[in-house]
Amino acid sequence: MNMQRRRFFGVLAVGGAAALGAGYWRLPAGPAPAALSIDAALVLLQRLATEPLVSRQGWSPTEVFNHCAQSIDFSIDGYPELKPAWFRQTVGPLAFSVFAARGAMRHPLDQPIPGAPAIDSPVAVSDALARLQQAFARFAAHQGALQPHFAYGELSHAEYAEAHVLHLYNHLSLIQRG
């Protein structure tokens, strides 16, 4: 029984790796909206704060900013739900390594963080944007241990910073100046 389970997870991991490898080439190849750093993301967010924003589809800009802030806060405080350990030790880290290597992330842009509260507060775009900027600043200043990512598992501070910026930039692909 234990051998069958190990074989099943091995096949699953290999299948996941193949799918991620194929998906690597489908990731956007164009330039990111800014450098892949928290400082560059904060400068970009400051510029966005001066313009009206609309979503081309899916979540509103307010929901996007609240969602990204949640993710950053959860990296410090802990995610409400985690994927199974086998996933966080195989498929999740592999996905992150593909995103990091490509310098771009692609994930469902209308999918909430598992177990997270609603992303409807704050309601005003400016307040949600300020919440996101505060979350980035809090993360940048954080010196303690970080919590495992719900899908990617254990990440260093630098890896988490990259993940947060890639995550934001992926969501910004559907937001435009109004």
Rank of each mutant, 00 (worst) to 15 (best):
I38S: 09
S156A: 06
M105I: 04
F65M: 15
A118G: 12
A116T: 08
L172M: 01
P80I: 12
A101F: 07
E159P: 00
D73G: 04
A49H: 04
P28M: 14
Y169I: 04
R177C: 10
G78I: 04
D127R: 06
A158T: 11
R26N: 13
K83C: 14
N2D: 03
R5K: 04
I38M: 09
A128N: 08
S75L: 05
Q176D: 13
I76M: 08
P52V: 02
D77R: 09
F136V: 00
P93T: 11
A101I: 02
A116I: 01
L166M: 02
Q111T: 14
G10C: 11
L166W: 11
G178P: 07
F136P: 00
Y24A: 15
V125S: 01
A140Q: 14
A116S: 15
R131L: 03
S71M: 09
L48V: 06
G78N: 04
V43L: 13
Q143P: 01
A49N: 09
V125P: 00
Y24G: 08
Q46F: 02
N2A: 06
Q4F: 02
A151N: 01
R177P: 07
V91S: 00
A145Q: 12
P31Y: 01
P33C: 11
G178T: 01
G58E: 02
R7F: 08
R7H: 12
Q89T: 15
A34I: 02
A40E: 09
D110H: 12
F87E: 05
L166Q: 13
D110Q: 12
E162F: 01
A34N: 03
I175P: 02
R131Y: 08
V14M: 06
G78L: 11
N170V: 07
E81L: 14
R102L: 03
R47F: 00
I175M: 03
Q133V: 01
G16S: 10
V14H: 04
G92H: 05
F96Q: 01
D77F: 02
Q111C: 05
R26E: 08
G103Q: 04
L44R: 14
A22F: 14
F96W: 10
A140S: 12
I113Q: 13
P33Y: 09
G16K: 01
A35R: 12
E63G: 03
H171Q: 02
G103W: 10
G58N: 06
G21D: 04
F9W: 13
V98H: 10
L48C: 08
H107T: 14
W59Q: 03
F139P: 03
A124K: 13
H171C: 05
R56L: 15
F87C: 05
Q176M: 04
D39K: 14
L82N: 11
S71K: 10
G23A: 08
P31G: 05
G92K: 13
V91H: 05
G58W: 04
H171M: 06
A161Y: 07
